[in-house]
């Protein structure tokens, strides 16, 4: 009799592993923001472990990211927040020797089970820490994502480029020099161009990895305004070192420390009365 029970338990465990975490919502539920304003959950991350070779960078991270909200990831350098961000559009796939377990569900679909990585990345766009426009014209930069994804209609591309540049509040500054090389723009303009480039293919989620860390205060505030504007149409996940920035732009915040997601919740709660001591210490500047 005891023997049979053991077998049963093992079967159950296998079953649990197979089950997609949509059904198994226990963990995500726990960290759901306690404020309920009926927001739809866009991304559900559960039990995410991530390894660079032998060293583990993320430990059992589970998070819910709501649609049309700004989600900020904060934490000291090397805490895994950028790594986590890059798991959301499988950019870590490009680094050899990395490994991952757990699931990342985008609208209920596991992005790591999708065969065509590029399909995931057209839905989850990304803006990098250092602005990285292509050595092409301003127009070509914004049009690039459309072209590689098979859009050939020139009028449609031109229209979309204009719309996107307007959306990124860059149109007025560049409309007369669309054919100039993007490298001739200022640093802040280049970063907004990179945001426009990411928006041009109309992703659903935009990941931003410290998008303003290399910019002056004026360019930074322009980008922050832009983020506030963009959340009407996009779900935004932003990594930032700057806690004031996180407080200003985000609706929800998660605090990472040494690869572990310590605490997540509405930004004002995290910044005013965090549950965990560690979060409080970090927010108040006692370390990090």
């Amino acid at each position: 009799m005891p023997e049979e029970e053991t077998v049963l338990e093992e079967e159950n465990m296998v079953e649990n592993e197979k089950k997609s975490p949509v059904q198994n919502e226990t963990i995500p539920d726990k960290i759901k923001p306690d404020k309920d304003d009926g927001a739809k959950t866009k991304i559900i991350v559960s039990n995410l472990d991530f390894y660079y070779g032998d060293s583990q960078a993320l430990f059992r991270v589970s998070l819910n990211i709501e649609e049309n909200k700004v989600f900020a990831l904060i934490g000291p350098s090397g805490c895994g927040k950028s790594t986590f961000l890059r798991t959301l559009n499988r950019m870590n796939d490009t680094i050899p020797g990395t490994r991952l377990s757990g699931t990342v569900l985008l609208d209920g679909e596991d992005i790591y089970k999708v065969r065509d990585v590029s399909a995931v990345r057209t839905r989850v766009g990304m803006v990098f820490q250092k602005s990285n426009p292509f050595p092409k014209s301003i127009f070509e930069n914004v049009a690039y994502g459309l072209k590689v994804n098979g859009i050939t209609n020139k009028d449609l591309i031109a229209e979309q480029v204009e719309n996107t540049l307007k959306k990124a509040y860059l149109w007025e500054e560049v409309k007369d020099k669309l054919n100039n090389n993007a490298y001739l723009l200022s640093g802040g303009q280049q970063q907004r161009l990179c945001i426009a480039r990411a928006l041009a293919i109309r992703p659903e989620v935009v990941l931003m990895d410290e998008p303003a860390s290399a910019l002056d205060p004026i360019s930074t505030s322009k980008i922050e305004d832009l983020i506030a504007e963009l959340k009407k149409d996009y779900t935004i996940v932003i990594v930032t070192h700057n806690m004031q920035q996180a407080a200003r732009v985000s609706d929800n915040t998660a605090f990472f420390y040494e690869g572990v997601m310590i605490e997540a919740g509405p930004t004002n709660k995290i910044f005013t009365k965090p549950d965990k001591k560690k979060t409080e210490d970090y927010i108040t500047g006692r370390f990090g």
Binding site: N89, M91, T94, S118, A119, R121, T122, G125, M126, F128, K130, N132, P133, F134, P135, K136, Y144, G145, K147, V148, N149, C194, R197, A198, I201
Partner: peptide, 27 residues
């Protein structure tokens, strides 16, 4: 050619072949 350019193209949904032909080779 900086990795940041490849990353930018990959993040826009380009496949490795497109990255080589449209970004790396011109640069």
């Amino acid at each position: 050619v900086p990795k940041s350019l490849r990353d930018a193209a990959l993040a826009l949904g380009a496949n490795p072949w497109q990255v080589s032909m449209t970004v790396v080779l011109p640069a």
